[in-house]
Amino acid sequence: MSIIPQLLLNGIIAGGIYALVALGYSLVFGVLRFINFAHGELFMIGAYIGWVFNIVFGVNILIAILMSIIITIGVSFLIERFVYQKLYTKGLMPPIIASFGVSIFLQALILMIFGAQIKTYRTGEIQPGISLPGGMIITKIQIVIIAVSIVLMIALFLYLKYTKTGKAMRAVSNNYQVALIMGINNKTIISYIFAIGAGLAAIGGVLVGIEQNLTPTMGVMIGIKALVATVVGGLGNIRGAVMGGFTIGIIENIGIAWLPSGYKDAIAFGILILMLIFRPTGLLGRKTEEEIRI
């Protein structure tokens, strides 16, 4: 089938985005055992803010991305500080239900401010793609997406491995109590973790906004699939999040060679369910089965 290489390429592009967003879920879950269902909305907000600066204010795209990162991190900080922080101690359900609320609230807010009409970054004609061997076509922005995703992921891994703050994050993620004893300021580290997640999501949002378009609900599916990717890779495992992201991206894009294309989204959920039934720790998960299964 000669379309497979193209589908594979599409899968890698999508996978890169899923991986970027999935990292945010994974980092947060690793420390707080909390899944922020509103994370996808940070992706969406990043896209819109970048759009505002780039198209409405006419600012250079790189500065627009920078502003998007800063403001999205700010939003994430506010939400974490005023909503989630108070709820972590209250059990399993309150923070997650709250994150549902935040997700809906943010979508509605953007809908109200910007309206439901699709917005785009493009002000000119659609650029033709570049032809690659194997009959594949890739556009410039898609190349940028892959490149940026990979660069960011490598940067993150290096950061976690070699910098002081990065090591502190791993410490907090591994063992909260010990990290406290060792004098690491956990609250600050947690804020940094949220910030990194938000920043990555914002970048992903702008890139996808450029590649496709903007709607208030663009974060929903991406967020959900990134969550699936995190679970597939193993909740709390950062490498797993990346692996999961690419896995989902590739399988769902190749899958539509056989399934009706409307079921593309459902493929991710199918993978999710199979994973949870047969290998709930995920591909690279570190939690033992006894913590997941009853």
């Binding site: 899944i35 997650i96 079921y263 989204d265 459902a266 959920f269 999710l272 369910i273 299964r293 009853i294």
Partner: peptide
């Protein structure tokens, strides 16, 4: 019901999305 807490939530969520997709 074989899964705990958050995993139960996620798997039921997955089923819900599949049903909607169908």
């Amino acid at each position: 019901t074989r899964l705990k807490g958050i995993y139960l939530a996620i798997v039921t969520f997955g089923f819900a999305e599949i049903i909607i997709a169908v």
